[in-house]
């Protein structure tokens, strides 16, 4: 595809975009591989491409960045691959919340996210807990009270039991004593058609999936799955805490790490690069359009943050009766 891509690029008369060389001590001399755990187009891949697009558009680096898809076992193949690149300065990886979870439940995952070189956390993906617009539930309390009165009558569409939406269900169930099952669907599209068709009652919808379902009056949001109100979400929707449930909100962080033992000079280069990325107009446009939240956590604090996420996840998994092996 490289040739065709170049051809299409030339047709667009794009500038080569080499940009002015910065007087950096260390710059990547080769193509930088950005490892993601999903196939093309899915969450992690789309995010990595969006970040690379910002870097290219804003001419933040002279190097070429390409996405490398290492699928298999959730994040397990990807993280093992990154770990095998010890000391490599031109390999990066985009992590997501399952990079923490898989290490806790899969014995084949030999590497923890914390053992990689932390570079930057870039976003949290907030979500909305939604029902169909014609649903009798107007508030989160309506739904939970109903689910308490009639256990297992109402259903939530979800994906894997390790996902953020499943965790949230579990924490809410444990906190309130209500009971409703999670019905698993493999793709976001199937989850959406299940709720739009009225086959399940509720769904946790990631910010990037919200689209215009709320504005067009197909779905109603009951609560924001976030610690603080998200500016791109409908104004009148409370956070879960504001709706009266003081629980730990499971986070969906995305950020960048490098292989273990990356050279300090290279790590410093990437840290500066990603600090610049989030300040650019292209990045702000991306954040607005996909309804994510910029949550920059610098490398120095990232290791502690990731460890905290791992602890929270471990507790949630244990209380959900999912076997934790580490």
């Amino acid at each position: 595809m490289a040739l065709l891509k170049r051809l299409a690029g030339a047709m667009l008369a794009l500038c080569a975009g080499l940009g002015a060389a910065h007087a950096e001590d260390w710059t990547p001399r080769r193509t930088v591989n950005v490892v993601v755990h999903t196939g093309p187009g899915a969450g992690g891949d789309a995010f990595a491409r969006a970040v690379i697009n910002v870097i290219e558009k804003e001419k933040l680096s002279t190097a070429r960045f390409v996405v490398v898809n290492k699928t298999g076992g959730g994040s397990t193949n990807a993280i093992n691959f990154v770990a095998s690149k010890e000391g490599d300065d031109t390999t990066l990886a985009v992590y997501a919340s399952n990079w923490t979870t898989d290490y806790l439940v899969q014995k084949d995952a030999m590497t923890s996210l914390q053992s990689l070189t932390p570079l930057a956390n870039l976003i949290f993906e907030p979500a909305l807990l939604v029902v169909r617009a014609d649903s009798p539930f107007k508030t989160l309390k309506d739904f939970i009270d109903a689910a308490k009165a009639a256990p297992n009558k109402y259903k939530q569409a979800g994906g894997t039991p390790l996902g953020r939406d499943a965790m949230l269900r579990h924490i809410l169930v444990a906190h309130t004593g209500a009971q409703w099952p999670l019905v698993s669907f493999p793709s976001g599209g199937e989850r959406l058609s299940a709720i739009l068709g009225g086959h399940v009652e509720t769904l946790v919808l990631d910010g990037s999936e919200v689209g215009d379902f709320i504005e067009s009056g197909k779905l109603r949001a009951l609560a924001q799955v976030s610690d603080v109100r998200v500016p791109t979400f409908p104004k009148d929707v409370p956070t879960i805490k504001e709706a009266g449930y003081d629980i730990r909100i499971p986070l969906q962080p995305r950020g960048i790490v490098g292989p273990p033992k990356m050279s300090p000079a290279a790590a410093e280069y990437y840290r500066k690069l990603f600090a610049k990325v989030i300040e650019t107009p292209s990045w702000k446009k991306y954040v607005e359009e996909t309804r994510v939240q910029t949550s920059y956590i610098a490398a120095d604090d990232l290791a502690a943050f990731l460890a905290k996420i791992a602890d929270g996840t471990r507790n949630a998994l244990k209380s959900a009766n999912i076997e934790v092996i580490r």
């Binding site: 595809m1 490289a2 040739l3 065709l4 891509k5 490398v68």
Partner: peptide, 10 residues
């Protein structure tokens, strides 16, 4: 040449 160079498939 077809895969690696032209199509960029690893």
């Amino acid at each position: 040449v077809l895969f690696q160079v032209l199509l960029d498939v690893d």
